[in-house]
Nucleic acid binder design. Structure first.
Lengths: 91, 91
DNA sequence: GTAGTAATTAGATAATTATCTAATTACTAA
DNA sequence: TTAGTAATTAGATAATTATCTAATTACTAC
């Protein structure tokens, strides 16, 4: 989970996730939504991929990025487990 | 949410939350579970407080820290909303 | 008040991370 | 095979963050 939280700790990356949950996009299309340079976007995409929050699919010279909701579900389960199975003294 | 994710992005802080979900502890008691120095723990407690993940209660010369499950619930809702109300094209 | 303990604040340093420019890889199309 | 486009990698720099020591604040008890 640490990689996921680290990935989510940057607003640029959360914004990328918000874009990708609406529709899959190429690296270039993602880039268009930001004011930073392409290599910086690549860097963020790389961190998101590392955390399994997105995955890449190469098509010709384009790289399409897709959301991976499994990782989001992991966050949900982490929070749920924390909240409900949290402070038992006698497990 | 960004403050919360930033707070969760450090393993020490998540471990503190794990301790506090079992029971409330003083700063000193929390400190005992780690190998780093007290001011570093203070720093982490401060970040967790800032993210509303914990809150402090001063009692004499001790400061008792308590978990705040509301912030955890916010994480849960964020993930749930992301997952389920996510990619509508026509809202 | 003075000594002792709990905790934080201040200030410095080291480690990490975000961003940039320049160079490179991979593919497309004439 | 050369020119053009998409994307990443390499390497440098700036900003942020984690940690430390030293100093300070706040409280307790004699």
């Amino acid at each position: 989970m640490n990689g996921v939280f680290k990935a989510l700790a940057d607003p640029t990356r959360v914004k990328i996730l918000d874009l990708l949950k609406k529709q899959s996009l190429t690296a270039g299309e993602i880039y268009e939504h930001f004011s930073m340079k392409k290599p910086s976007i690549s860097h963020h995409l790389n961190i998101l991929s590392g955390a399994q929050l997105i995955y890449a699919e190469k098509k010709g010279q384009f790289v399409h990025y897709h959301i991976n909701l499994t990782a989001i579900q992991d966050v949900m389960r982490w929070a749920m487990k924390f909240k409900h199975e949290g402070g038992e003294d006698d497990a």
